[in-house]
Design a protein around this nucleic acid. Structure first.
Lengths: 270, 270
DNA sequence: GGGAAAATGTGAGCAGTGCTCTTGCATGTG
DNA sequence: CACATGCAAGAGCACTGCTCACATTTTCCC
């Protein structure tokens, strides 16, 4: 902070994680760098993977806020301070877990979506929604991590989470565009949308790289956002049990899934 | 733990909050007990109110997870252990804050709703939605407290939060019933709902006390839940900025509000 | 009024947390 | 082989929730 602070001159970052070249690849498989990286780098990678693994276990059992670096270190048989050689801070660990969760969700949803025939628009939407729900119910803490209230005093660095976070939205956009191609987008009146207001809402969001290739107009996007919001709201409400005790969660989700579907796909004519 | 431990024999619960008769009235005004309660009770009420006030301030600035009993005590000029005379635990304080927030939301929304003419169904829905949104945006931490991810290792005692938590839902039910009376509930096909599935989803939820007086069927209730889920999802997504940077949040909310409205109110015929 | 009982204030203390820093050892690399 | 580097270890700081023993005050009842 103080530019005249002399004490920090010779210790730029005393003993902080050196971020060696054995970098933490985001997720999509180990990077095929055939570089025979030495024992040291190899060990570092292994330890970092272990930390992430144990942290995920703790996350699954105790939740995000109860995540303790000391506990992770203990489980790994290292001294509490030792873990700071590998993880800069608790927030850093959280960030990595968040990115991990985003990827996990995106790949799960994508797999379910891609298993459906391309022409079956409703089927694709339902697969997407159901995959989202079951993923969230299976690992509620991961879901809470990315779609729950943000951890206080911690803001996920957007530049690191953005790619993973928009992956599932990108999938949604392609589906939406296919619906448009099939001429089955519901008329704006269906949701009572006003075109001018929709244009104002999304602004030049349509210029985002996610939409290159898609020819959606503002109203269609607004419909898509409504459908997604309803879907996510349904899952959120079930995972966090915001509605109190519900007789049959699966059936209720079916209803909400149908409702969200009707926001973006109008019934086939035949 | 040790049943033979003699030291704990004479101190069953040494110095725990005695929950004296100067009880913590939920919210709706101070109970008009003209009892001239002595200095002690008066002081206790004042201190409890102070604690809640300061806790709300901390909540607003630092969030729920950062809420610290010690810090609250410090701000009140009392010794850290002293606060346990008034609050049983951190969880207890959280519970009180949650109930408080529920009531705050419910009264705010109700006021906005009641300011609209009874026949103006769309206006009532919009007022309800807009009040929810502005309340949430003004006090995001309170919103997160009740509609965000649950605080870990803490489960709100349902029997204490239920009344406050369902207050706004009850308001929604009365509106829904008025829509039914006006014959303006959208047909189930509008949302692609299947009646049998809806009945399965809500089960005998319609027997709940909330619905006494209302003559809603399962499908209508499912429509209402869809609308509410969309509305809550819209607010959640904006407060937690789940969609990334949005050009015009208010306009987008307008669109989603319209969409949710179309789930429960079909356009007037005239 | 006086004394017992209940309610309250005080400070020490325990176990846990995130995080920093210094020290010394082992190891990989030039 | 020698040196610089990575790493483990442990002490330490400031903070947390919470408990307990003890002193003080207020209230209630006889």
């Amino acid at each position: 902070m103080d530019p005249l602070d002399a004490t920090s001159a010779d210790t730029p970052s005393a003993g902080r994680p050196p971020r060696s070249r054995g970098a933490t690849a985001p997720d999509p498989g180990p990077d095929a760098s055939a570089e025979p990286l030495g024992k040291r780098a190899r060990n570092r990678q292994a330890v970092e993977a272990d930390i992430l693994r144990v942290a995920r276990e703790h996350l699954a059992t105790d939740g995000a806020a109860a995540l303790s670096l000391r506990a992770v270190a203990r489980d790994l048989g290292m001294v509490s301070s030792g873990i700071y050689r590998y993880v800069e801070s608790r927030d850093e660990l959280l960030t990595r877990l968040i990115i991990d969760s985003y990827w996990s969700l995106a790949t799960t949803v994508r797999a379910a979506h891609d298993a459906v025939a391309r022409e079956d628009l409703e089927g694709r939407w339902d697969a997407l929604g159901r995959a989202l729900r079951s993923w969230a119910l299976e690992q509620p803490h991961d879901f809470a991590l990315i779609y729950g209230s943000p951890v206080p005093d911690y803001a996920a660095p957007a530049e690191r989470t953005e790619e993973a976070g928009t992956a599932v939205l990108a999938l949604l956009v392609t589906l939406l565009d296919d619906v448009r191609k099939a001429g089955r987008l519901p008329p704006p009146e269906h949701l009572g949308l006003v075109d001018a207001r929709a244009r104002q809402a999304v602004g030049d969001l349509l210029e985002a790289p996610m939409f290159t290739g898609a020819r959606l107009d503002a109203t269609s996007l607004a419909q898509g956002i409504a459908a997604w919001t309803l879907l996510l709201g349904a899952v959120t409400s079930e995972v966090f049990s915001q509605l109190g005790p519900v007789p049959d969660g699966a059936a209720l989700f079916d209803c909400l899934l149908a409702a969200s579907r009707s926001c973006v796909i109008s019934p086939a004519r035949d």
